[in-house]
């Protein structure tokens, strides 16, 4: 419903899905994300842009606590998912990641698993029961527009696909665990232009049901697919607004300089 409403009234501000307040992240002594406060609207695409090393990937990985797997990394601050602080000591990060899924820069299907098993991997590895695995596989592969290409070879290894197909398989794998938020860390930067176009179409479709946060180097991509945009620079959030506002009427001169290619 809300997706429909937003088509009618693009100015309506959606509910926040994620509320980040005063988030800091460090690698050992390096302070890479500095005091970020930001609300990610529900069922929208929020793009994080900025030059290399501005902390945008680290920020993204703080949202599902994936940065904790990097030795020496830590974070401070609050990330509220529907009002629940994901950094509270009682939170199990593994459980959190079933609600906040992630797609990586490099397609990483499990090499020892078939296409089918890759889609089911989240359930199989977690030991959760799936009522109709065949239907789930078909639904998820259809969602990423991969079904027609692979339906006759679901038993083949996931790594036998092209890299664009592999990346869509990885997205299907995330969808299968039914997350609410999907974090995309430069999901098409390792892909060719056609595969990139597929991924962008997919992002457009997914935002009807999911909240998406997209880190990208590619400003055109951010302009094409995102509804909101955050510009990061040297670990700071410089500006956050609707994408059309940022592109047409940025408030900060650094944002304008970056968008017009004066630095970055």
């Amino acid at each position: 419903m809300s997706a429909l409403e937003s088509e009618i009234d693009p100015d309506a501000t959606p509910e926040p899905k994620l509320q980040i307040s005063h988030l800091d992240a460090y690698f050992n002594d390096r302070h890479v994300v500095r005091d970020i406060t930001l609300s990610v609207p529900q069922r929208r695409v929020t793009a994080i842009i900025g030059p290399s090393g501005c902390g945008k990937s680290t920020f993204l990985r703080c949202l599902n606590r994936m940065h904790e797997h990097v030795p020496g990394a830590r974070a401070r601050g609050a990330v509220m998912l529907d009002g629940v602080d994901v950094y509270h000591p009682s939170i199990n990060p593994a459980r959190l990641r079933r609600h906040v899924g992630m797609v990586f820069q490099k397609p990483n299907p499990f090499p020892t698993m078939s296409i089918r098993d890759n889609v089911l991997a989240g359930h199989r590895l977690n030991g959760t029961h799936v009522d109709a695995p065949g239907e789930l596989v078909e639904r998820c592969l259809r969602q990423v527009a991969l079904w027609d290409e692979v339906k006759d070879r679901l038993g083949r290894p996931g790594v036998s696909l092209s890299s664009g197909q592999q990346q869509r398989l990885c997205m299907a794998r995330v969808l299968a665990v039914e997350p609410e938020v999907i974090l995309l860390d430069e999901p098409s930067s390792a892909l060719d232009p056609i595969a990139t176009a597929h991924i962008e179409e997919l992002i457009e479709e997914l935002k009807e049901r999911y909240t998406l946060v997209l880190v990208t180097h590619n400003l055109q991509q951010a302009a094409r697919v995102s509804d909101y945009m955050a510009f990061f620079y040297l670990g700071n959030l410089v500006e956050f607004d609707r994408t059309d506002v940022i592109f047409t009427n940025p408030k900060e001169s650094r944002t304008e300089d970056y968008l017009t290619g004066k630095f970055g």
């Binding site: 593994a94 459980r95 959190l96 990586f104 977690n126």
Partner: peptide, 18 residues
């Protein structure tokens, strides 16, 4: 590759299962 461990963790798979 680290990417496989990350993919597994990102699906909410516990460390031992990963």
């Amino acid at each position: 590759p680290t990417g496989l461990r990350e993919a597994s963790h990102a699906l909410g798979v516990r460390r031992t299962a990963t």
